[in-house]
Amino acid sequence: MKIYADENIERSIIEGLRRRGIEVISAIELGYAGKPDAFHIEKASEIKAVILTHDTDFLRLASNQATQHHGVIFAHPESISIGQCIRGVELIASILTAKDMENHIEFL
């Protein structure tokens, strides 16, 4: 499973996931900081990646029946630590396939 980390995801989470062998594409590293959420969903879909986000706006967009996406993993920044986020994403990536995540939202 490929992960597209939106601009709100801390660098420490991205690096922690990469150290665990998870492919992570960072919106910031791609120069996409400040782009609208719909842009990020489109870019993640183009590369067939699951979006990792702290942004509740993605939940609204992803739950819209008209929006097709490769999945969203939502980690609320006030209720989950960096380590819990890394372990949660790692668990999801080890259990669910990219196909399982299509048009699906997972909450950490």
Rank of each mutant, 00 (worst) to 15 (best):
S26W: 00
A33I: 04
R20I: 05
I47E: 06
D100P: 13
I41K: 02
L59V: 12
S81F: 09
E29G: 04
R19Q: 15
K99P: 01
D6L: 03
L61R: 11
K99G: 06
S79H: 10
P36H: 07
C85T: 15
E90A: 15
L96D: 07
D55F: 14
F39A: 04
I47D: 00
E102C: 09
P77R: 10
I92S: 10
I92F: 11
G34V: 10
H40Q: 15
I9E: 07
N64M: 08
S79G: 03
E46C: 00
A93E: 10
H70G: 01
I9K: 03
E106F: 09
A75H: 06
I80G: 00
D57Y: 09
I92Q: 03
I47Y: 04
E7F: 03
K35M: 12
Y4V: 02
I28C: 01
E7T: 07
S26C: 05
H54C: 15
A5M: 10
E7I: 01
G71S: 09
P36Y: 08
I86K: 05
R11M: 05
R18Q: 15
N103R: 15
K43C: 00
V89K: 05
T56K: 14
A66E: 11
E42M: 01
I41F: 06
K35E: 08
G34I: 11
I28N: 10
I47N: 00
L17E: 02
E46F: 01
I105E: 06
R11Y: 09
D57E: 13
I82S: 08
S12R: 10
I105Y: 09
I9D: 03
K43V: 02
V72L: 11
I41P: 01
A98C: 08
H76Q: 07
I80P: 00
E23T: 13
A5R: 07
R87W: 07
E23M: 04
I95A: 00
L91I: 05
E15V: 08
V24T: 11
I3T: 06
I51A: 05
I51K: 08
R60G: 11
I25M: 00
V89E: 05
A93Q: 03
L91M: 13
E42N: 02
K2M: 06
I22P: 11
Q65V: 09
E7M: 08
A49M: 05
N103W: 14
T67C: 09
I22T: 14
V72E: 04
I73P: 02
I95Q: 02
A75D: 04
D37E: 12
S12C: 04
I13A: 05
K2D: 11
S94A: 13
K43E: 09
A62L: 10
G71Y: 03
T56A: 14
G71M: 05
L96S: 15
H70L: 00
I95P: 00
F58Q: 02
S45C: 06
H70Q: 04
F74I: 04
L96F: 14
S26A: 01
N64P: 00
A27T: 09
E102R: 13
F58Y: 15
H40V: 11
A75P: 08
D37L: 10
D6M: 02
V89A: 04
E10D: 13
I3K: 05
P77F: 14
I82Q: 12
I82M: 12
T67P: 03
C85W: 02
A75R: 08
I9H: 07
A38S: 15
N64D: 14
T56W: 08
S12Q: 13
T67D: 02
P36V: 04
V72M: 09
Q68F: 12
D57C: 06
